[in-house]
Every structure is written in C-alpha cells, then in structure tokens.
Design a protein around this nucleic acid. Structure first.
Length: 258
DNA sequence: ATGGCAATGTTTCATTGA
C-alpha cells in the first residue's frame, strides 16, 4: 500500500499536476492540503475519472484538506476536524482506507513567534496530540500525514542559523513533534537512509529550489504496527521542477502487505 | 533589516503563506 501527502497550494491551479502525478504514481492514498476550495468546487468528477474516490473539507481562500483513495479500496469512517476542538479552519480530515486509519492534517503555520497565530498553532498542536492518544488506542493501524509546518530537527533545515527565532523550528513546535513520537508515531522518512539536505518545501523566492534552500515540513508518521511494514519513504522532487509548481512536493511511503 | 514569489479576493492592492 502506498500513501502520499502533498500540499498543493490551490487544487484549482494544481489539479492538472495532481492528475499527471497520479498517472505516473498510482498510489493507493493521496492526502492533499491547502486545496483552497469550498466543497461545491471540489473536482470530484475529474478525480473519479482518474480512479479515485474522495473525501474533502474546504473553505474559500485558505486551508482545505482532502483524502483521495483508489476506488477499488474500501473507504469508511469519514470525518473531519479534531473532536472537541472548535476550529473554523478546515485543517483535518480522516478516513479508513482498506483498514488503515488515515489522518490528513494541515497544521497551522504560526506566522511568527510573537503572533496570535503562533499561540493558535500551539493550542492546535496540543489538541492534536491529546486526540492522537485516543485515536492510536482505537486504531492501531494509523497514519498521520500532511503539512506539519514543523521542521523536526536542524538537519531538516537548509540553514539552521538563518531560521533561529522563526516559526517551524521553535522549541515548542519541535516538542509537539516529539510528543507525537512519544505516543509511538514514527517519522517514516527517517526509517531509511536519506540524502543530506532532503526537503519537501522550498520558497518560491530567491531561486530557493535551484539552490536547495528548503525545509522538510511534510511528513508521514506511522503507528508502530505500520512502521514495521514500511519498506520505503521518499520525497518526489519532480513535481517541484515543473511549470507553475506548488511550493511543496509529495512525500510517499510504501507499506508491505500485512 | 528588508524583500524576494505565488494564490486569492473583487483586486487595482492587502493578506497569507513558510
């Protein structure tokens, strides 16, 4: 089973990229973030033609998440949001696909350490971690994937010194990531030997992609039972090289049959 | 220190992202 995540930065603009990518990479599950579409505008028919069933939850301009699953697989238990956490922003959606419990998340950016948005990010992360504890107990086969807006370690940052004092690398954010690991979730990418300076996001500005000035902030985290089955996790940089790309590129994890 | 690039809204620039 292959599970991928991709922050597409507008599914309206990026639908052709997604369809092209799926044609080459027929993953079983693709989690999308920043669809930036209200539900009435979601391109359900186009994705159905490509062989994918969908569940989505979006809003105008900002946020928006979706899970695509091959239509040959059973997709059940559809829900969105973090239970008990009031949030107008559409950032979490979940579904069970062929018995694997998938949570697709777009964790807040935080803007800057002195921003209200940063406080919101920390509250949000706290709610997520508390909820994950019960989710993991209920669903031993669990994947948490998406745009975490957290670079877990300095090796996930092109120039750590340049990022000191900024969001995505702050102590409290990284502590939340560690808290997820302490619940048993495993950063699939780090199960394997990887090239130095592997990133999943590059700023549009300053030729950041060509200079590989990026961050690794998009993650696939696996419950212990699934980590045991994971045979690979790669970042696919090809979409980032295309015309009019998203600033993020897909991350793909492969699980061996149970 | 600042802005650089891209998407969105109803736009003629502001806001947000990371």
């Amino acid at each position: 089973m292959q599970i991928a995540t991709w922050n597409v930065n507008s599914l309206k603009v990026r639908l052709p990229h997604v369809l092209d990518w799926l044609a080459i990479n027929p993953v079983d599950v693709l989690c999308l973030q920043e669809t930036k579409l209200t539900d009435d505008k979601f391109p359900r028919a186009e994705l159905a033609s490509a062989g994918y069933q969908v569940t989505f939850c979006g809003q105008k301009t900002y946020n928006g998440v979706a899970i695509l699953a091959r239509d040959t697989l059973a997709m059940t238990d559809l829900a969105n949001g973090i239970p008990g956490f009031e949030d107008e922003q559409k950032r979490v959606i979940r579904a069970s696909v062929a018995g694997v419990h998938i949570i697709c998340a777009y964790i807040p950016n935080g803007q800057s350490l002195d921003s209200d948005k940063y406080q919101y990010k920390l509250r949000w992360l706290s709610a997520l971690v508390a909820w994950l504890k019960t989710e993991l107990a209920a669903h031993p086969q669990l994947v948490l994937t998406g745009d975490f807006n957290i670079a877990p370690q300095d090796r996930d940052v092109h120039d750590p010194a340049e990022w000191v004092g900024q969001v995505l690398v702050s102590g409290p954010e990284r502590a939340a990531f560690v808290a997820m690991q302490e619940l048993g979730l495993v950063d699939a990418f780090r199960l394997f030997e990887q090239a130095d300076k592997s990133f999943s996001w590059w700023d549009y500005r300053m030729m950041a992609f060509r200079r590989n000035r990026g961050l690794r902030i998009d993650h696939v985290m696996l419950s212990p039972a699934l980590a045991q089955r994971c045979t690979s996790c790669i970042i696919d940089k090809l979409p980032r090289k295309q015309e009019q790309p998203s600033d993020h590129t897909p991350v793909v994890a492969t699980l061996a049959p149970a």
